[in-house]
Design a protein around this nucleic acid. Sequence first.
DNA 1: TTGATGGATTGGCCTGACCACCTGGCAACT
DNA 2: AGTTGCCAGGTGGTCAGGCCAATCCATCAA
Lengths: 256, 256
Amino acid sequence: MNTSEKVSADPSEDAGPFAPVVAPRSAPAQVADQVVAAIREGRLRPDDRLPAERELARTLGVSRPTLREALAGLELAGLVRSRQGHGTVVVASAAVVANWGAEMTPTQVFEARLAIEPELARLAAEKRYPEDIAVLRQAGADLEEEFARTGHYRSDLPVHRAVARAARNPVLATALEEALRHTETARWKELRSSALRPEVIREGHVDEVRRVVRHVIRGEAREAAEVWRTHLVHYRDEMLTGLQIDAGHDAEPLET
Amino acid sequence: MNTSEKVSADPSEDAGPFAPVVAPRSAPAQVADQVVAAIREGRLRPDDRLPAERELARTLGVSRPTLREALAGLELAGLVRSRQGHGTVVVASAAVVANWGAEMTPTQVFEARLAIEPELARLAAEKRYPEDIAVLRQAGADLEEEFARTGHYRSDLPVHRAVARAARNPVLATALEEALRHTETARWKELRSSALRPEVIREGHVDEVRRVVRHVIRGEAREAAEVWRTHLVHYRDEMLTGLQIDAGHDAEPLET
DNA sequence: TTGATGGATTGGCCTGACCACCTGGCAACT
DNA sequence: AGTTGCCAGGTGGTCAGGCCAATCCATCAA
């Protein structure tokens, strides 16, 4: 969890002696953090009642509206449930909250995508709803058109998302979006800029995308999953080659 | 502010002439719903600025604190970002929000778990952090002890969660929790009560759990994943046998 | 024992206000 | 001309205090 020693906010774009000031955490956010931490550490368990709003606000040293903003956020997130005249009770278990706000190394992101996306392709090929197929076909056509015209393409994300949508599984689709969200950090941008220079985009990439689209359209589930998997493996290997430090392990693995 | 006329809650568990009263949606929740809907429908796109709080509150007919509770929730969920003096801007794309609040059929839940859990077992077996292994071993031992003593067990969820934790992948672990969350509806409880009566719990179930724990401990990644997968398949088949209506398909599949 | 009741507690929502911060434009200075 | 300094307006951040409605629970009456 500890970042590198030389703080230096964003290594990818920090050139001078000055680092940007940290954005202060708002009062409601700090309150919410405390509650989340309490749940994670087991100091608050499901069905526990929080102190009354007026009292809790006083103990935390914030006003009641501020506290209520925090509780509203937690309730919208499903961690807590408030009922008039009854109180505010914890709903989520520690397991639900265990990984909130966790950092993801690039290796972990690929672990997740490799678990999810081939299965999404398989499901998409099995279900084949006409609307979804149309969207997928269009996304593939757009990519091919851009590649044919310019010799490269900016992103194949629309195809990945079209496959996810066509799979019709909210949990898996949301999980993919979650993985992609971790792809917008400075570290990733740096990886992309060094690994995915336009001249690196080979015909092979486009071909993999083309084949996945075709397999899904034809309902060839196993083949779709396999192509999607190799596509991700290629992408991962290009991205992570020569990357020794990955900080994904902060403890020693065990031998049998 | 007006609720629906004929309440008519959940058709899946409505047996008598009386339907449970629908829990009224709070004002902040309704506001948040509107924003989410606007994002989903593309009426609000990333980088769009929302109207100023005072103005938006007036437009929606709520007070500013109420509006702020809604925005606090949306910000905690990462859909929106407020900065003092600048305004509130949309962060999330329609894709992120596309599946929020979606219902999951039992079939879909198993689709997700079958995609995620074998991979979690594989990763757990590859990483094998001592703390996680200890937790997993304990969870397995608890299950065996309960089964040996009573001839059945209430739940193998602790083992599933221990495997997830040992995989050290926040996105996948959270996705599993999300899938499990959809397992607490009335429909699922009904399925469980009819399919998992104590006398149905066979030695085979416990044996599968035992084998997964052992494979993970020994670092046999492929075997761990395979056993976990068959365990889920067995569970699914027992649960869904004789279940014709699944409502997972609301459009006609396409032929090639 | 049972049922009603009324107060105390709790969250739900509002009004109004002040502060801190950001932005953009204008004026003063170099 | 370009830079700096300043300030006013708009914005979110926070607070204080209040009223209402749902719930709970101890009390009391039948």
